[in-house]
């Protein structure tokens, strides 16, 4: 059995293997990065470390998420290691990444092997970033492909 941290973006319920989640925090003071890609929501100060926040909705090809009371940031473990290679993040610190989501759901247990292929009615962007769906008690859980989410481009 795997455990999944679940969260909402729009109508959909997404899931991430809980082992890949470092922590989940409330949204506060995001500093925007002018002229960066649309899905870069900005930077936050997480206890002295700078975390780059992705707007998951934009990443999936939809409109930017408005920040609501229920909004949270899912901080990922091990960030984007790809960043090391392009020379911008030197000094060997972790390149921390966070996902801006609409609301946080429960932790759900499910058998990873029972994941099915994502449905066919997806946009290109979605197809790239989604790795499958899982039927759970909480509903249909869409699994994210973190590797792809955090790859550049």
């Amino acid at each position: 059995m795997s455990q999944y941290a679940t969260f909402n973006v729009g109508e959909r319920l997404f899931g991430l293997d809980i082992l890949g989640v470092r922590e989940i925090i409330r949204v506060f003071n995001i500093t925007s990065v002018p002229r960066s890609e649309a899905h870069i929501r900005g930077l936050i100060n997480l206890r002295g470390q700078i975390v780059t926040i992705l707007d998951l909705s934009v990443r999936l090809g939809h409109a930017p998420l408005p920040v609501k009371d229920s909004s949270h940031i899912v901080i990922l473990k091990h960030g984007a290691n790809a960043a090391q290679s392009n020379g911008r993040n030197q000094g060997g610190t972790q390149d921390l990444m966070g996902l801006l989501v609409d609301a946080i759901g429960d932790v759900v247990e499910a058998e990873a092997s029972r994941a099915e292929a994502p449905p066919a009615n997806l946009t290109d962007a979605e197809e790239r970033f989604l790795s499958g769906v899982l039927k759970t008690d909480a509903g249909l859980l869409v699994l994210l492909n973190v590797q792809e989410l955090l790859s550049s481009g």
Partner: peptide, 15 residues
């Protein structure tokens, strides 16, 4: 250092 993920802008050297 700025995250390697942010590539759209060359205006910043870091944060």
């Amino acid at each position: 250092p700025l995250s390697g993920f942010i590539q759209g802008t060359k205006c910043f050297s870091g944060a």
